[in-house]
Write a protein that binds this DNA or RNA. Sequence first.
RNA 1: GGCCCCGUCGUCUAGCCCGGUCUAGGACACUACCCUUUCACGGUAGGGACAUGGGUUCGAAUCCCAUCGGGGUCACCA
Length: 586
Amino acid sequence: MSTPPVVTRFAPSPTGHLHIGGARSALFCWAFAKRHAGKFMLRIEDTDAARSSVESARGIIEDLEWLGIHNDLGPYLAPDGSIAQRDWPDGRVGTFFQAQRVPIYDRELERLVRLGRAYPAFDTPEETEAQRAAAAAAKQTYRYPRPAEIEFGVFNPALEARWARAKAGERHVVRFAAPREEIVVHDRVLGDVRIAAGELDDFVIRKADGFPTYHFAVVVDDESMGVTHVLRAQEHLANTPRHVALQRALGYPTPVYGHMPIICNMDGSKMSKRDKAKVARQFLSDTIKKGATTASAASADTGVAPADLAAFLAKENDSNEIAAKIASRFGLTLPEIEVADFRASGYLPAAICNYLALLGWNPGLKTPDGKDLEKFDMAFLAQHFSLERIGKQNSKFDRAKLLSFNADAIAAMPDADFRAAWASWLGDKAIHGDAGVATLRPVLDIVRDARRGAWLVTAIKARAKTLRGAYDSCKNWLVRPDDSKSFAPAAVEKHLKANNGQGAALLRAFATRLAACDPFDPPTIHALIDAFVKEHALPNPGPIAQAVRVAVAGEPVTPGLGETLAVLGKSSVLARITRCLEALAS
RNA sequence: GGCCCCGUCGUCUAGCCCGGUCUAGGACACUACCCUUUCACGGUAGGGACAUGGGUUCGAAUCCCAUCGGGGUCACCA
């Protein structure tokens, strides 16, 4: 007998950008499918009509593509920018957007009703809410009380009457008649998880707006789309018994489950999209408390309506937009939570995937020199991923380690690849707008320039930890006006004025040599420096190198001088040195 | 609070299933020194963990129990 092909799925709800935790779920599902020569599916869970949007779905699809997590089934971005999809050869799915699958859910739901396993309920939200509150006040666990007239597993006259009322259009929800039996989930990561009989209550499977709830849609779709393995975060573990109960009632097989640990902040709380709002809110209320601004001034500064800002401060919403506006107005850095955040910060997809793979999973292999194997690519993951090696405990997201992985990934890149990645990052930034937009364009132009770009890349790549870092480390001296008179005072003191102006004197002498330097390229400039050092019997190149740095960049920190000066070009370098000497004299 | 999951350096983890090879290994971070034209890289060294208490055993990080601690979840969100 042949084992059925493995089909995993990632099923986000399109209510925002792809969360980093979601990215890891997708990565593991992808890797597992690849490892078993199966298929990885993307499904869009947009049954929350109010919060879902196609733009979000598109964004999530883009983020997955960018990460290099490609799906075999489900929606993808066509070359013309539209959302296309790949179905099974027999076209059994039709659409992977749940909101468009309502007839399928309705059909299965009616089947459940006629089986006596689901029933319409006509309570208003207020009524159930009041009951819940009363139970909470009495310190009791609230479970929806099944009406006495409902007989488990029997489509009796009372149920038939309810069904008729529902069909006639009376406002209602449909609830599942949960079994009163122990449910055991055989989890491939956690082992058997037992839920005692009576723990499940009659939860809602179809909302008053006619859309299925998550539980129902998931169960129906996993079956109808051919999903064999469900790998998701542990936050879903508590839902699994409901899903198993539903599958049994519907006569479906139960897929293999594996619940992976949750990704947390360094403080141990679950990493959440709200964290950005939290940071911004905290910052703004502190600033107001200190008297540095007022709510109305902040509202005017950020362009957020006073009422919206007040609601935000009162924790009535966690709008990422408002958080972003506050951050940009006050120069506050928000934590990266979503894939798009990390992308904007200049992280490489390969480094993100590598780091993510290590969060809750480990290959358990050693490198030839006996160290733990930690650096690997997607192909390795696709070959070695296994459920057995997924850990059970939650892990904290350590940005310092991600940063280190990213720096290593950049260092390992061929210059040409780095240059392309950097140019594309700069281009994205220039298009989407950024605080440093004024310097973005010129830097991008230099990166694209054949000779200067190549020199810049050699100068920058080795010391860059992120693409943003690469940009930050050169934008100031690169776009510095040749007639700028701003020089870091302490550096001027130390490298130009000290020892009776030794630095300035050396600089003056060196400028003459530079003027005669030809070709003006890194090796020639390096040779020039070496010769200059020997000639002046300097103990090391420090005195002249630092003097040049201050004169040319205005500060004592730049990449290697050969590349730095070459990129700038002879006339610019000479003009800056002249300007610096003038400034010194006055 | 009910239910569920988890508990090895600050963090991610190897080791645990199949007790001895563990005076517990690696990575990131940190500290010191070296290298060095600044920054970064690189090199060397260092501090740093089996949550606690009981068992079982000749022997426990590894098996069992309890306690404590952390997390998740309790919607007509997913």
